[in-house]
Design a protein around this nucleic acid. Structure first.
Length: 206
DNA sequence: TGCCAGGCCCTCTTTAGGGCCTT
C-alpha cells in the first residue's frame, strides 16, 4: 500500500483568511499501518504569537523567531510529502494552512486530503466525541509527546488512521482501505455507510 | 468601534439554527 502523509499544523489562529499563520508543522508518513518517516519543524512566518496560543501549545514568540523561515520549511515539507495523498484530523483546517503557506512560498498544493474527523463520525458514531485526544483514549492508543504540539498530534492522528484501516479490514472486511477508499467513505452520507461498507466487503470476496 | 472561519451534521429541518472540530 502506498504511503499516506498525516499532517498537523500549529498556528496563530483559526483561519489564514483572517491573517493567521503557521508556527509549526509535522508530517508522519504511514505505510502499511506503520510509521516509516517523520518531518517536524517550527517556522518563522514573521508574525506575533498571541498569549492564548502560547498557553495552548507552549510555542512562544522566542521559539518562532529562532525558527527557520516559513517558506523554506514549507519547501522542505512539500519535498517530504511529494505526491503522497494526505490525511489530517479536521482536514478542512490543515488543508487551508497547507494551501495558504505553500502559496506564500510560491509552491503548488495538489495533494488530496482525507479527514479523520469525518471518517471517525462514520465508523465510530458511538464515540463520546470526535476530538483527537478523546478518540485516542477511546481506542486505547498511546498518547505520544505533548498534545497541541505538531508532531505529537500528527503521530496520534496517524495512529488513529492506522486503527481505522485495521478495523476496516478486520471488522468490516474491506480488503484495501487505501486513500481513495477513505475519501469515498468520508464523502458518503452517514445513512449510506452500512451499505457502502457491505458493498466494499462483498467486492473483497474472492 | 466592533467584529471576525467554514464545512459537516443533526433536528423541535429543508423558506433554519446551532453544535462540532481545528488553533
Amino acid at each position: 500500500m502506498s504511503p499516506i502523509a498525516v499532517i498537523d499544523f500549529e498556528t496563530t489562529g483559526i483561519s489564514p483568511d483572517q491573517g493567521a499563520r503557521a508556527t509549526e508543522v509535522a508530517i508522519v508518513l504511514l505505510e502499511g499501518g506503520r510509521v516509516v518517516d517523520r518531518f517536524q519543524s517550527l517556522m518563522n512566518a514573521g508574525t506575533w504569537v498571541p498569549p492564548f496560543i502560547t498557553q495552548l501549545t507552549g510555542i512562544t514568540n522566542a521559539m518562532v523567531q529562532a525558527a527557520p523561515a516559513a517558506a523554506s520549511v514549507m519547501a522542505e515539507a512539500a519535498r517530504f510529502v511529494g505526491s503522497a495523498p494526505m490525511v489530517a484530523h479536521n482536514a478542512a483546517f490543515d488543508r487551508k494552512f497547507w494551501q495558504a503557506e505553500l502559496a506564500l512560498a510560491g509552491l503548488p498544493a495538489a495533494q488530496p486530503f482525507a479527514c479523520t474527523v469525518l471518517l471517525s463520525r462514520r465508523l465510530y458514531p458511538q464515540a463520546p466525541n470526535h476530538q483527537l485526544g478523546v478518540l485516542v483514549d477511546y481506542h486505547g492508543l498511546p498518547r505520544t509527546g505533548q498534545a497541541h504540539r505538531a508532531l505529537a498530534d500528527a503521530e496520534m492522528a496517524a495512529a488513529l488512521l492506522a486503527r481505522m484501516q485495521h478495523d476496516l479490514r478486520t471488522r468490516w472486511g474491506v480488503a484495501a482501505p487505501d486513500h481513495d477508499l477513505l475519501v469515498q467513505l468520508q464523502r458518503c452520507t452517514k445513512a449510506a455507510v452500512p451499505t457502502l461498507l457491505a458493498q466494499l466487503a462483498a467486492a473483497a470476496q474472492p
